[in-house]
């Protein structure tokens, strides 16, 4: 049986200057998403509707060039052909019957990583994106993740690691990455590593299903 839910999808594009405390809302548009299907934010929202929370917040972090914005746009069922390196951050949000899902994608350059902490508050799930094919920086990404897991504001927040870019020839298998990052030693939160290719859309849904199951009950 196909269930149709009438929803308004509100896409908010926010380009902010991380160095100024004030957010600049430069573009905002709304469109009706009824016609679309797929693995997008909408289907996640449908699954989450039994949750009592009114607003959920997913935080996408990872090194620069990991594929965070591609993943975000894929989740929002948007075109991914021309993606600019993120200078600040991007947000997508989906609303349905008073229930709201926000996904925050924060730029990953070394220089702007200190600003990540400004976005920790009230995070329901941390999604950490890794470029599995960037062998040179697996250590650097592991170090950044380690720092994140020690943050008080992210204590006990479920962690999904996307081992992205699995479609690339030099990609390390997710199991090797899990081992390299020492994920098995994480005891203070539920975690999962998911192999994926954001450009191909493969594995993304499987990760999101885990997110739905592991949203913290407040």
């Amino acid at each position: 049986m196909v269930q149709t839910i009438a929803v308004d999808l509100k896409k908010s594009h926010i380009i902010g200057d991380l160095q100024s405390p004030k957010m600049n809302f430069t573009i905002e548009m709304a469109l009706n998403d009824q016609g679309r299907k797929g693995n997008g934010l909408l289907s996640i929202l449908r699954k989450l509707k039994s949750q009592p929370d009114k607003e959920l917040r997913l935080l996408l972090l990872g090194l620069d060039n990991a594929g965070k914005t591609t993943l975000l746009k894929k989740l929002a069922s948007e075109d991914i052909t021309h993606i600019t390196p993120t200078q600040g951050f991007n947000i997508k949000s989906v609303q349905s019957e008073g229930f709201k899902l926000n996904v925050w994608d924060i730029g990953g350059q070394r220089k702007i990583r200190p600003y990540w902490r400004n976005y920790f508050e009230n995070t329901d799930v941390l999604i950490y994106v890794i470029d599995s094919a960037d062998r040179k920086r697996l250590e650097e990404t592991g170090h950044e993740l380690e720092e994140l897991l020690m943050e008080d504001k992210l204590a006990n927040v479920p962690l999904l690691v996307y081992a992205n870019k699995q479609d690339l020839l030099h990609a390390a298998p997710a199991s090797d990455i899990a081992e390299g990052l020492g994920l098995h030693t994480i005891k203070d939160r539920p975690w999962q590593i998911q192999a994926c290719s954001a450009t191909a859309g493969e594995g993304v849904k499987d990760g999101m299903e885990w997110v739905c199951k592991n949203i913290k009950k407040k």
Binding site: Q192, A195, A200, E202, G203, D206, W210
Partner: peptide, 18 residues
């Protein structure tokens, strides 16, 4: 089977292209 390592040891059977 092991591309997905989960705490509960869930495995998925259908394969990915890679």
């Amino acid at each position: 089977q092991n591309s997905n390592v989960t705490k509960k040891g869930e495995v998925k059977l259908e394969g990915y292209s890679w």
